[in-house]
């Protein structure tokens, strides 16, 4: 109940300020002066979601919202800015005043594709235009087959088959994690894939269920319930090392099956624009950390098959650097090079 009320109340408060024409806060804002850093936060914080309301990132953000609100003591307004492959929202984070009052979720590696692909005209941007504030979720890529497929029924079988004859595989779009997963696999293990790009995970999963494609590349969270129901069979998870996904305990990782050295995931974490006052970053990062690590939050995300993977701002940054390196390498070689 409380999340509903907080959302409503925050909207009301913000709106009431507008209607009665309160001018005060405008005059106080500037570029992260020390006084405002001490007072932070003294007004609502906007969290920008680069995807539509009701989508995966949005749902995750709204689940997290009350826990971080409780930590910060000010309302959080979730603002959806879908469009431009996410860049309608991410642009807004980049260009926001670095006060800490405008932050948002960034989703890798789709986010990297948006500025690394020179055709999209954002090459002046990099992860350095953002201040990482902590990672919320990491959802590993996985490969699924149709349970009735008699050509293969495990990962080595799939890879051996794909070395001799091209298999059709799904992807959630050019430069998505699923696309990089199949590109990376072919790059390393010499498999041949004809990639079928769709507009969302459900496109690809439908194609596999209807046996129109040979393999589905998707994320654990998207495959879990169908795997549990036996509608499709996940043959491998592209996790780091041998640690299996708690949501798919019966599925081996790629490394377990002898195809190590390559992992793929989509992650989402919070970030603000560059050059936020370090003291403001500390306050935000602390609240975000406690919010993400809250047991109730972890439990609610687990119900959706999503693994909470908290990473501190410095680890989050390392993750972004690593993601950018893989994305640049595969993208330059296969997509826009």
């Amino acid at each position: 109940m409380h999340s509903t009320r907080l959302t409503r109340r925050s909207a009301l408060r913000y709106g009431a300020g507008l209607a009665s024409g309160v001018l005060g806060p405008t005059l106080l804002t500037g570029c992260g002066s020390s006084a405002s850093a001490d007072a932070f936060p003294d007004r609502p914080i906007q969290v920008i979601i680069a995807y539509a309301a009701g989508g995966g990132t949005d749902v995750g953000a709204r689940i997290l919202q009350p826990y971080v609100e409780a930590e910060l003591g000010v309302p959080i307004e979730v603002v959806n800015r879908p469009g431009g492959g996410g860049w309608s929202g991410w642009n807004e984070i980049v260009t926001a005043e670095p006060t800490g009052y405008v932050i948002g979720f960034i989703n890798t590696p789709n986010f990297m594709t948006g500025y690394l692909d020179p055709r999209l005209g954002r090459t002046e941007i990099s992860y350095e235009n953002f201040t990482p504030l902590g990672n919320q979720v990491t959802d590993f890529s996985a490969v699924a087959i149709h349970p009735d497929d008699d050509r293969f029924d495990d990962l080595p079988g799939v890879i051996n088959h794909a070395r001799g004859q091209a298999l059709t595989v799904t992807s959630t779009g050019v430069g998505s994690d699923d696309h990089y997963a199949s590109l990376g696999l072919s790059d390393r293990y010499g498999t041949q894939f004809d990639v079928l790009h769709g507009e969302g995970a459900s496109d690809g999963i439908t194609a596999l269920l209807g046996r129109h494609v040979d393999l589905a590349f998707a994320n654990v969270g998207e495959l879990k319930s169908l795997h549990d129901d036996g509608e499709l069979k996940v043959v491998g998870v592209m996790a780091d090392g041998r640690q299996r996904s708690p949501h798919l305990p019966d599925v081996p990782t790629f490394e377990e099956e002898g195809f190590g050295g390559f992992s793929s995931w989509s992650s989402r974490g919070l970030a603000g624009p560059a050059n936020i006052d370090p003291r403001v970053v500390d306050k935000l990062a602390g609240a975000i950390k406690r919010g993400i690590q809250n047991r109730e939050h972890i439990g609610q995300l687990a119900e959706q098959g999503l693994a909470v993977d908290y990473r501190s701002p410095s680890e989050h940054k390392k993750m972004l650097i690593r993601d950018e390196r893989t994305t640049r390498q595969l993208g330059t070689k296969y997509i826009w090079g």
């Binding site: 300020g17 001018l23 405008t26 006060t99």
Partner: peptide, 18 residues
């Protein structure tokens, strides 16, 4: 929009807070 549907309408320079 603002109260029920939670849409953030443009605030502009007069009332903008950020």
């Amino acid at each position: 929009f603002v109260f029920e549907l939670n849409v953030q309408l443009p605030t502009g320079i007069l009332f903008g807070e950020g």
